[in-house]
């Protein structure tokens, strides 16, 4: 680069420009492959009013009606392999905390009614399950796939988002903290 020889200012300028472009490209490329934390964490959970999977009017769930309780909103589908992995952990959480002011709500995402019912019958799950027929709740929660789980505190604020299968122990720690009014 004979043009730059003996011209320290020009050389420094070229180096700075090249580093700036490389840094911009690197930032852009790395952002494209990572999922940022949900912007909803720390904010009010979007309300939904969804029909129960069994179709009975009393099975419908309105999220805002559960204010005052800790709510675990789990988006799932019968075709989702990872949902089967986390199913025992969700059942365990429901059975352990159901009498302590905690509700687990399953939200069936892009599924067929028959498959979803067969899945739940096989799993033996007893917590309320609703159907997000037109994916309105999924879009409101910023869903990127299933399974995804949101922990909503007693004030209706999202305190955690879990992408992928949940673990009962980790969920229990979070719930216990919320019930004790401590860790959020």
């Amino acid at each position: 680069m004979s043009v730059l020889r003996g011209r320290p200012v020009l050389l420094t300028g070229v180096i700075v420009a090249v580093v700036a472009v490389v840094a911009l490209l690197a930032t852009g490329l790395s952002r494209g492959h990572t999922i940022e934390a949900s912007p909803l964490v720390g904010k009010a959970a979007p309300d939904f009013h969804l029909q129960g999977l069994d179709g009975k009017p009393e099975s419908a769930v309105r999220l805002s009606d559960l204010r005052g309780q800790v709510v675990v909103v789990n988006f799932w589908a019968s075709w989702c392999a990872e949902c089967r992995v986390e199913q025992p952990d969700l059942d365990q959480t429901w059975n352990r905390f159901r009498d302590a002011g905690v509700v687990v709500v399953g939200v069936d995402f892009q599924d067929t009614e028959g498959d979803a019912r067969a899945y739940l019958a096989e799993a033996g799950s007893t917590y309320p399950v609703v159907v997000d027929t037109d994916s309105t709740a999924a879009l409101a929660f910023g869903l990127r796939g299933v399974p995804e789980t949101f922990v909503v505190d007693q004030r209706g604020e999202i305190v955690e988002r879990v992408i992928g299968p949940v673990e009962a122990d980790r969920l229990a720690d979070r719930i216990t903290g919320l019930l004790e009014g401590g860790v959020r």
Partner: peptide, 26 residues
């Protein structure tokens, strides 16, 4: 409303704020 649920990564082009400003200023 989509940015509120998904963050600015839901946009196909960088937002005109923060680091995204550099792309437009370049």
């Amino acid at each position: 409303s989509f940015i509120a649920a998904y963050g600015s990564s839901v946009l196909m082009t960088p937002p005109r704020e923060g680091l995204g400003r550099l792309v437009y200023a370049f």
